[in-house]
Nucleic acid binder design. Structure first.
Length: 482
RNA sequence: GCUCCCAUCGUCUAGUCUGGUCUAGGACACCGCCUUUUCACGGCGGUAACAGGGGUUCGAAUCCCCUUGGGAGUACCA
């Protein structure tokens, strides 16, 4: 039987970093086993689910490069793939469970429920202890009350026995009989509840593996009960570790940038994000750390999942971005970096060939394209860029810089070049100047290079002049002498 | 409270299943040196961990138990 794995987010917000990682694992397992990856939208919470979130989520999943075989926008044989479109099925099965004695209507009002929970709390027993008030209520009587229009929910009748299952990452897990009470499967507004539709769909959509985060581990006991009552085969479960923030708590909004769209907006490389996320809870058999996810499918398996929670660290993500940035070439590099450079930046006025040459050189210095701006200063500034630490050092340089002979020499050379119709100095030009100043003007060593740097770039430090000067327009260089 | 899960450098992790090759390896970050007449890159090196206690064993990071710590769940959210 072919492996089928689903990612089932609820559209109540933007795709979360943790969600993206789960989706990645689902994608990878499906791919590794030559199976299908399915996207299902769990929108049964009418208040919080929004269609625009669904759209955004799908966009983000695509941006991550996690293409699925079936989903709301990719019809398959077991659709629809949006739970709000499967209501009839859930209702039918919920009532089937009622008729078979696995579930029952319950008429407890929310006020009554609150009181009962309160009571259980003061008695220091499980809060769900009194939720089963209607479990033995006469069904015919119940149906009469429903027909009269009375509000009700459907509760699942807990069979009160232990449940054990083998989790693919955690091993054998056992839940005691009283872990949960008679829980709701159909709300009073007619909407089914997560644990119920999840099982129905995983069954009807023929899922073989349920891969999700550890926060769902405890839900598994409820789901196991439902599979059993439905007479459905249980899939394999794999609960992967949680992603946590600095405080070791589940990663959430208050930890800062935790949605994929924020990284997209900040122009991170999706392959870098995926690479980093992949390693947060899984390890490469050869301890390789920089890779594209599609390169590791054949070695991806559940055995290398880590059970303990992983801390999400942006510093390390930045490193991964830098590594992937350096893997980019020519056109890729240009179209990627260009987006991060302010639209009014002089960079955009340059020739394409120049841009690529500049980026190929500067890419070694940054992790993110947004850091490029400060490095470009050396190419475009017209005012001296000096920080306090430079001042001391500058005293010498300034005395040199103001030496009229050398100033006028460089200026003269630049003017000659300009008149010959050249737009940029060549590397050879730069060497000639250096040699001339060395031989004829008797300046060498540190004063030579520091001095030339200060004169030509108005900065005391920066990248290799041999590279930088040929990237700077002669016109601009001349203005630096005025 | 109750239930479940987890526990190796600050962080991500290798090693745990199949005890010895682990005076615990790699990566991020940090620090130093080399290289570069600057900066960065790169290279080399450094600081830094088996939570604690009991067992089992000739031998335990690895197996068992307890303690402690952390997390998750305990909803008519998912």
């Amino acid at each position: 039987m072919s492996v089928r794995v689903r990612f089932a987010p609820s559209p109540t917000g933007y795709l979360h970093i943790g969600g993206a990682r789960t989706a990645l694992y689902c994608y990878l397992i499906a791919k590794a086993k030559g199976g299908q990856f399915v996207l299902r939208i769990e929108d049964t919470d009418q208040e919080r689910s929004k269609p625009e979130y669904e759209t955004a989520m799908i966009d983000d999943i695509h941006w991550c490069g996690l293409d699925y075989h079936e989903g709301p926008d990719k019809p398959g044989d077991v659709g629809p793939y949006r739970q709000s479109e499967r209501m009839e099925l859930y209702k039918e099965l919920a009532w089937k469970l009622v008729d078979e004695g696995h579930a029952y209507p319950c008429f407890l009002s929310s006020e009554q429920l609150e009181e009962l929970t309160e009571k259980a709390n003061t008695e220091k027993i499980a809060p769900h202890a009194y939720h089963g008030q209607f479990r033995d209520y006469d069904l015919a009587e119940a149906k009469k009350r429903i027909d009269k229009g009375e509000e009700f929910v459907i509760r699942f009748k807990n069979p009160n026995k232990k449940y054990t299952f083998k989790d693919l990452v955690r091993g054998e897990v056992t839940f005691p009989e009283d872990m949960v009470g008679d829980f709701v499967i159909l709300r009073s507004n007619g909407m089914p509840v997560y644990n119920f539709c999840c099982v129905v769909d995983d069954w009807k959509m023929k899922m073989t593996h349920v891969i999700r985060a550890e926060e769902h581990l405890n839900n598994t006991v409820r789901q196991l009960m439902i599979y059993e009552a439905l007479g459905a085969p249980t899939p394999e479960f794999a609960h992967c570790s949680l992603l946590v923030g600095e405080d070791r708590q589940k990663l959430s909004k208050r930890h800062g940038a935790t949605s994929v769209s924020q990284y997209r907006d900040q122009n991170y490389l999706p392959q870098a994000l995926m690479n980093y996320l992949c390693l947060l809870g899984w390890s490469h058999p050869e301890e390789k750390d920089i890779f594209k996810v599609d390169e590791i499918v054949e070695m991806f398996d559940l055995n290398r999942f880590i059970k303990s929670p992983a801390l999400y660290d942006i510093a390390k993500l930045n490193f991964f971005n830098g590594q992937h940035l350096r893997l980019l070439t020519g056109d890729e590099l240009l179209s990627y970096c260009e987006r991060s450079i302010p639209t009014d930046h002089s960079f955009h006025g340059q020739e394409k060939e120049w841009k690529i040459r500049a980026l190929e050189f500067f890419k070694e210095k940054v992790n993110l394209p947004s850091e490029l701006d400060e490095h470009f200063e050396v190419l475009f500034n017209t005012e001296p860029r000096l920080n306090e630490a430079d001042t001391e050092e500058l005293k010498d340089i300034l005395s040199w810089e103001t030496t009229p002979v050398i100033q006028s020499y460089l200026k003269e050379e630049l003017t000659k070049l300009k008149e010959s119709g050249v737009e940029y100095p060549s590397e050879e030009n730069f060497s000639e100047w250096t040699n001339h100043i060395k031989k004829e003007l008797k300046v060498k060593g540190k004063p030579l290079f520091k001095g030339m740097r200060a004169a030509l770039t108005k900065m005391t430090q920066g990248p290799d002049l041999k590279i930088v000067i040929p990237l700077t327009k002669i016109d601009l260089l001349i203005t630096r002498f005025q």
